Amino acid sequence: MNDADKHSLLKRLNRLEGQVRGVARMVEEDRYCIDVLTQIRAVRAALSRVETGLLKHHLDHCIEAAITGGDSADQRQKANELIELLDRSNR
């Protein structure tokens, strides 16, 4: 991962960390359940965007390198890793 992409990813994750701390504060302060749940949904959506970005990076770089590299064992390994990841997501 290049430095710019890594910086962007870490920035998003740090923002998410702050959001999660904010949710914890809301719980400590006995805030209205719907308000807390709304913030949890926002955190989940933000985490999903990070996941999507990282998956795109994996496809654009790691998977593409395996395909263009011509190593069939590496291609199978990368494909299997992706299939296993998607399978775990469906459980």
Rank of each mutant, 00 (worst) to 15 (best):
A4R: 05
E64H: 10
Q19M: 13
R21G: 03
K78H: 11
A46R: 03
M26C: 05
L54W: 06
E64L: 12
A42R: 08
R49G: 07
T38D: 05
I34F: 03
Q75V: 14
C33A: 09
S8P: 00
I34D: 03
G53R: 10
I67P: 00
V43E: 06
K56I: 02
T68H: 11
K6Y: 01
A46T: 06
D5E: 06
L9V: 05
D3W: 02
S48L: 12
L54S: 08
E51T: 06
E17M: 01
K6M: 01
I40H: 02
E29Q: 14
V27A: 11
L54A: 09
D30R: 06
L16V: 03
R76L: 14
A79W: 03
E29W: 04
T52D: 09
M26A: 07
G69A: 10
E51V: 05
V36S: 03
R88I: 02
L16W: 01
A42I: 07
D30N: 14
M1W: 01
N2E: 04
G22I: 03
N80A: 07
Q19G: 02
V43C: 13
V36E: 04
S48K: 10
D74R: 13
L82A: 11
L37R: 02
L86N: 13
R31A: 14
A73P: 06
R44E: 15
A4D: 05
E84D: 15
N14C: 00
Y32A: 08
C62E: 11
L13A: 01
S89K: 12
R21T: 05
S8N: 06
H58W: 13
R31T: 12
D71G: 09
A66P: 10
